[in-house]
């Protein structure tokens, strides 16, 4: 569905330096040799700190920007050359700004979108009814877009992006600034869209909840380069994230000696052990209970927030073992 090969995008920035009118030119490599491909039906999360190149990638995928070099194919088309043909086959949602019209009621905005995409009246009715039900649009269809809450507006934007039933949906930070309930509605909707309709979805986000809840595959971009590409489990492993067993013994004791399960810390009766990859937590617990008087036991996984924070801090830490 998407194919990017060695794509680079550079910008020339002219900045005024100091108070004088002299201008300084700097070349910024917003995207620097990124390659990846997305299969039909995938749900890919595209992650990265601000200014990492996420939005630039999205703009190249949708044909808004022309890449400086490299090859981009979306749905078999070159976005920069076949922008309008591609537009009929993909849907795009920008979380930061609406693609709807401020002064028009949502219903009229959607009518305009129908005209833009030349969706047949019949197909439009069915699709609108469907989207209205799923996204709960009914209460505010007659409200001008400027009066909608952020969550309502986002749902309206989603409907507008899906009226023409696109094969690929591209979302740039769709949950930014949304309240908990709206977030849940949007996530639930996207999950269903991907599962039931088979729509390929690519979303960029800051919200790791989106990734954990939705994406089978994660890609991390930093300083214009791909820093990681794989599933969540692989991300945990790559980041050196491990599973730990926190054991609370009846009384302070010397470090537990269990084959292949090293002890990391001992704090009085509480000891923390590191579970190696592929270790069976249940059998380790059973072995523990057989040898020691255990009062409490807890399995702890490194949160995705921490993993990503580690990745952002620098590439080298990705492969280094965790040191907590």
């Amino acid at each position: 569905m998407i194919e990017m090969t060695d794509v680079t995008k550079t910008f020339t920035l002219r900045r005024r330096t100091g108070r004088r009118l002299r201008r300084e030119r700097t070349v910024v490599r917003a995207v620097d040799g990124v390659s990846f491909s997305v299969e039909r039906g995938e749900f890919l999360g595209y992650l990265g700190p601000n200014g990492a190149g996420k939005s630039t990638t999205i703009k190249m995928l949708t044909g808004i920007l022309t890449p400086t070099s490299g090859r981009v194919r979306v749905a078999g088309l070159d976005p920069s050359r076949a922008r309008t043909a591609l537009a009929r086959r993909i849907g795009v949602v920008f979380g930061q700004r609406t693609t709807l019209w401020w002064d028009l009621p949502l219903r009229d905005s959607l009518t305009l979108v129908r005209r833009l995409y030349r969706v047949e009246e019949r197909a439009y009715r069915t699709r609108l009814d469907e989207l209205t039900a799923l996204l709960e649009l009914e209460p505010f269809l007659a409200t001008p877009v400027r009066q909608l809450s952020l969550g309502q507006r986002m749902r309206g934007d989603l409907a507008a992006a899906l009226l023409h039933d696109p094969e690929l949906l591209v979302l740039d930070e769709p949950t930014i600034g949304l309240d908990v309930v709206s977030k849940a509605t949007v996530r639930g909707f996207l999950a269903r869209l991907n599962a039931e309709r088979g729509t390929t979805i690519l979303l960029t986000t800051h919200d790791l909840g989106d990734i954990e809840r939705l994406c089978r595959r994660v890609m991390i971009i930093d300083h214009g380069r791909a820093a990681f590409d794989g599933d969540l489990g692989a991300l945990r492993r790559a980041a050196g994230a491990d599973r730990q067993l926190v054991v609370e013994l009846a009384a302070p004791a010397p470090p537990i000696d269990l084959d292949g399960v090293p002890v990391i810390t001992v704090e009085g009766p509480r000891q923390t052990l590191r579970l190696p990859d592929g270790a069976n937590a249940a059998s380790v617990v059973a072995a523990l209970a057989a040898r020691h008087e255990v009062r409490d036991i807890a399995l702890r996984e490194t949160g995705i927030e921490e993993i990503v924070a580690r990745l952002y801090r620098g590439d080298q830490e990705i492969s280094a073992p965790a040191t907590s």
Binding site: K59, T62, I64, T84, A87, F94, R97, T99, L116, Y117
Partner: peptide, 17 residues
Amino acid sequence: EGTLDALLVRPVSPLIQ
């Protein structure tokens, strides 16, 4: 305001829009 991007992802010339 960056709203031109929203026009460019639609299948109609931004001039007409």
